[in-house]
Amino acid sequence: MSEVLLLLVGLFLPLFPLSMVFNEVFQRIRVASLRVVLLLIWPQIGVVIAHTAGVEIPSWLIFWALATAALYGFRALALREVGLWTSFIATSAWTILWLTVDSRADLAQLAVYALALSAPLALLALLSGELEKRFGAAYTGLYGGLALSLPRLSGVLVVVILAIVATPLFPGFVVMMAAIIESSSQSFIAAVTVAMIWLLWSWAGARLLQGIIVGPAQEEATADISVNSTWVYAAVLILLVVSGIYSIGSL
């Protein structure tokens, strides 16, 4: 029974090769709002199963999770399609949750951790939809220079990427710190691996940003996102920062 439960957790807090299922599903869905729902719900299912089942997680599985996170973080470096990038980083991020999932952990806290990692990715899925609407594809290196031609969208994109790569004050930072603290008590190699995965995210995030916002302005005029949409994005991001600041105290 516990093996079946672990497999289920491995599907929703995706461990390689089960992670391919999530990536397949995510890439088949082309509607941004559905992608948002998927990003928000998928890891929550994993967290709930892991917690309610109360299964003891063997240490080799933790290393497998870290290997999966490293694999997807590394593979994200070479990606140019924003949708694929989102699903790979989501896979990499959610597997980090294996470090914090144990029978002692509080379910609410685990759910918040999962949400902390998913929420900025959900925002990126929406922004990716905006890019597809305007250019037919959300692709780095294809158009570039959006900082000048679409300043509002670019501004939001920059902050969303910062949130995804767990920049301090965003809740992702708290999750990464918690994972490093947890792993450093057991194995220094595990802590270093988590830290290296964090580094890979930063690298992948910078490559994504540079491929979209940097460069000379577009010759053809394209409509930016509306002021109201910008305020909505800003409100969500401010909420994330406030929750991040609040939860730093829990470390």
Binding site: G145, A147, L148, M177, I180, S184, F188, A191, V192, A195, M196, W198, L199, S202, W203, A206, R207, Q210, I213, V214, G215, P216, A217
Partner: peptide
């Protein structure tokens, strides 16, 4: 933001600093 070179070298700075960040976090 027009200068790809400026961002390229800014990236070098970022990634080196992140290596230092990781050491401090550990």
């Amino acid at each position: 933001s027009r200068s790809k070179t400026a961002y390229r070298y800014a990236f070098w700075t970022l990634i080196t600093y992140r290596i230092g960040d990781i050491a401090l976090v550990l």
